[in-house]
């Protein structure tokens, strides 16, 4: 069970949170201009890295805020947490 440091509430138990998949995938501003392949790239393709991964998390049973997490999926070490819109820390 992770201990997650919500950037708005502080350290809370993992059961208060929901994982939201890979981070920094921006929704295309003009979806209608995209080819099927380009749209599929946004819609379906995820990296699913074994190692350091950038993820979105939601404090669903707390402040309901979304934020980003850098997590090593091989050992579940949380390396960084930062707010939506903030630049990811350099590795």
């Amino acid at each position: 069970m992770f201990l997650i440091n919500c950037p708005y509430c502080g350290e809370r138990d993992q059961q208060e949170f929901k994982a939201g998949g890979e981070a920094h995938i921006e929704r295309p501003k003009q979806p209608t201009e995209l080819s099927d392949d380009e749209w599929a790239e946004y819609l379906f393709m995820r990296k699913n890295i074994k190692g350091v991964q950038f993820e979105r998390w939601n404090h669903a049973h707390g402040c309901r805020k979304w934020f980003n997490m850098v997590r090593d999926t091989s050992n579940d070490e949380i390396k960084a947490i930062y707010k939506m819109g903030e630049k990811p820390p350099s590795q």
Partner: peptide, 13 residues
């Protein structure tokens, strides 16, 4: 509600 919050906070802040 979760989905709407997601779009509001992350895609259309």
């Amino acid at each position: 509600l979760g989905k709407l919050e997601d779009y509001l906070q992350t895609e259309w802040p």
